[in-house]
Design a protein around this nucleic acid. Structure first.
Lengths: 203, 203
DNA sequence: CTCGAACTTGACTAAACAGTCATCTCCCAC
DNA sequence: GTGGGAGATGACTGTTTAGTCAAGTTCGAG
């Protein structure tokens, strides 16, 4: 067994198992078995199951952030950032299906909507990530409005609407294990912003 | 204790507890306690926890169906049906918040996306209900296209897109316990169909 | 070499879990 | 009135759960 990376293996096992099923259906024992780590070591690294899940959400989000930083790079025009984001979602979920055997949607969204009632650290972390993600969209919308590429209006409300559409499509894709809706996002997501379709390159 | 309605109390307790938290977080014992029914009686009425949850999904859906039949009544113009649906969602979730203390979104959607991995009877039932609901939208879209109130195109794809937007808004409303997005649905949901806003009454 | 900190191990607990069962109670058809 | 079926009851089983712990092992710094 490789040494030193038991903590990482536990986090990865938690991501894999929880993403493919659910928070409530995955036990500490199951995580330990998949990570090939003994129970005692688990509690050496993490104070509780919740503690691990918070770390898993963090780790997963950290791995997505550089990708989003590229997709939403300010070196591109605002509408191009959004277009790249819509394309990225379908591609990414295609990878996920290749890796996990099915479309899984948004990791933190699945965890967040499951742990909604009691305000645990897990729920708080999932909400935090959800807001951070929405801010990428918000920023692109604001920039687009500033340069007149989008009609002016409340950028927060516009981002909320677009975000709802995107996460809704991801959730539907998960439930029906179907990439179709996501593959069409580059055309259809613009509707949520009040645009008929993707912006013309020459605009 | 009232007689005869133990079965109904169990179903209602299951709906209440699972909707407000999650499928995985609710135990048979907890359901029994809330319903004031002993463990033995539970298994007199239901073969398993899953069996109860399927019945709970069925019961809940049965209680929504007549409301949807009214909202989507063919006696109204297709676009008016949709407009009433969008309005209905916000009103309904307002009632839910009054009753349960928080916005809960879609019952069967929450259960469905949690039980997605292993194809259980619960997952199948949740999917079945999800499709049945989408068919209401699909039918209204088809009728609207037939009478030229909507541009013609694939009604199934259009309904899928609109459904993704609506369920996405419901999921966001659940996660953030916020009705705002739902209250704006009567204005914004039309975007998902490629329309700028609600249809003019005189059209 | 040696000490201590980081890490590992497996056996352990107490509670919660889904599900079982024999027995009891009620009430209605006959 | 009585036999039988529907329903109620609580004690029970075996398993799984999260979490604990004392006794290890490993390994680099001094």
């Amino acid at each position: 067994m490789s040494r030193g990376d038991a903590r990482d293996r536990l986090i990865q096992a938690a991501i894999d198992l929880i993403w493919t099923s659910s928070y409530g259906a995955v036990s500490v024992d199951a995580i330990c078995e998949r990570a090939q780590v003994r129970k005692g070591s688990f509690y050496h690294f993490f104070a509780s199951k919740d503690d691990l899940v918070v770390a898993a959400l963090d780790t997963h989000w950290s791995s997505r952030r550089p990708v989003l930083d590229d997709v939403f790079s300010a070196s591109r025009a605002p509408l191009e950032r959004l277009q790249r984001y819509f394309t990225h979602i379908g591609e990414r979920q295609g990878e996920v299906r290749g890796q996990y055997g099915r479309v899984l949607g948004c990791f933190h969204h699945a965890v967040g909507s499951e742990c909604v009632q009691r305000p645990t650290a897990v729920a708080a972390k999932a909400q935090e990530i959800s807001l951070a993600l929405r801010r990428y969209i918000e920023s692109a919308v604001r920039d687009a409005q500033a340069e007149g590429a989008l009609p002016s209006g409340d950028p927060v409300a516009a981002a909320k609407g677009l975000f709802a559409y995107v996460t809704g499509a991801l959730a539907q894709a998960r439930v029906h294990d179907d990439l179709e809706l996501l593959r069409q996002l580059p055309q259809t997501a613009w509707l949520a912003l009040g645009m008929a379709g993707p912006p013309k390159p020459g605009a």
